[in-house]
């Protein structure tokens, strides 16, 4: 096998893994910090994609459409937290079912508003040549975006007062209140940030994954498994499992078939759960 082909496969696999990571971070924040399984995460991603798409259709540059998408999803996320999630903290399976209901409601709303087929936006055209092969540049850029997003969330959660409050409020809710933290308000913000990250993912991936009402389903399953396998050290764990599972699946898919890639993903997930019933990071002694 030629070296340039191998490099191409590795780069594109890393890019697939990064795309998975971008789609996962928001879920990691919400599940890891709040213990809420947000099955509507994929739909927040979809809302972000449509928000960005609509903004560009009004002539707003793509770069500015991204923050708009974040603002829209954060707002909706905050409303959802106040109306639904807040009543269900500590009831893992109820949050799962309620957000599943939310997910199908959002999906249907998107069908009603946007229809099932929507125009994509063109992918920024730049390419990377490796030997005899040429790779589209934008998906490769996602490797950097994933890295930046991970670092951003890490810094937000570990270096800011909000981040400390958010972690305190979720690690020991009662004790957090006893030192003056308004846990409810902090939790609303954390959930909104998780949704905002989904919106960011939807917007930034728009050139690669066109906006459709059902795009959420495709992402949420793998993102969700990634986070559960990651365990309590959510962010680092998710980055690791996204690269391992997503990258591994992508490499498998390049050499075999896309189905083999998916099978790889699910089999390894089951295997890891069997080995580490509480997630691979259950015994780690690090913060995020």
């Amino acid at each position: 096998m030629e070296l340039d082909y191998l490099a191409t496969v590795l780069l594109s696999s890393l890019s697939s893994a990064s795309i998975l990571l971008i789609a996962t971070i928001g879920l990691a924040v919400v599940f890891g910090l709040m213990g809420v399984i947000n099955l509507a995460h994929g739909e927040f991603l979809m809302i972000g994609a449509y928000a960005a798409l609509t903004a560009t259709q009004y002539g707003i540059p793509f770069v500015i459409a991204i923050p708009i998408a974040i603002a829209v999803t954060m707002t909706i996320g905050a409303v959802v937290e106040v109306l639904i999630i807040r009543r269900l903290y500590g009831r893992l399976f109820d949050t799962m079912l309620a957000t599943w209901g939310l997910s199908i409601a959002f999906y249907q709303l998107a069908v009603l508003i946007f229809g099932t087929v929507t125009p994509g936006i063109g992918m920024p055209q730049f390419n990377l040549r490796i030997g005899n092969y040429s790779l589209a540049g934008y998906p490769l850029l996602m490797i950097a975006v994933a890295a930046v997003a991970t670092v951003f969330v890490y810094v937000l959660m570990t270096r800011t007062v909000y981040g400390m409050k958010a972690r305190a409020a979720i690690q020991m809710p009662e004790m957090a209140r006893a030192i003056g933290i308004e846990s409810a308000r902090v939790n609303t913000l954390t959930f909104a940030i998780g949704c905002g990250l989904a919106g960011f993912a939807g917007a930034v991936l728009l050139p690669i994954v066109p906006a459709t009402p059902s795009m959420g389903f495709a992402f949420v399953i793998k993102a969700f498994l990634t986070v559960v396998v990651a365990g309590p050290v959510t962010l680092t764990g998710s980055a690791l499992t996204a690269v391992g599972l997503g990258g591994g699946a992508s490499v498998t898919a390049s050499f075999l078939t896309s189905v083999a890639g998916d099978a790889f993903f699910f089999l390894i997930t089951a295997f890891l759960l069997w080995l580490y019933p509480l997630g691979i990071t259950a015994k780690w002694r690090t913060k995020m």
Partner: peptide
């Protein structure tokens, strides 16, 4: 719009 109603019904049921 069955799906929409289903989704809302599920949320209301859980709540």
């Amino acid at each position: 719009q069955t799906t929409l109603i289903l989704g809302i019904v599920l949320i209301l049921l859980v709540l």
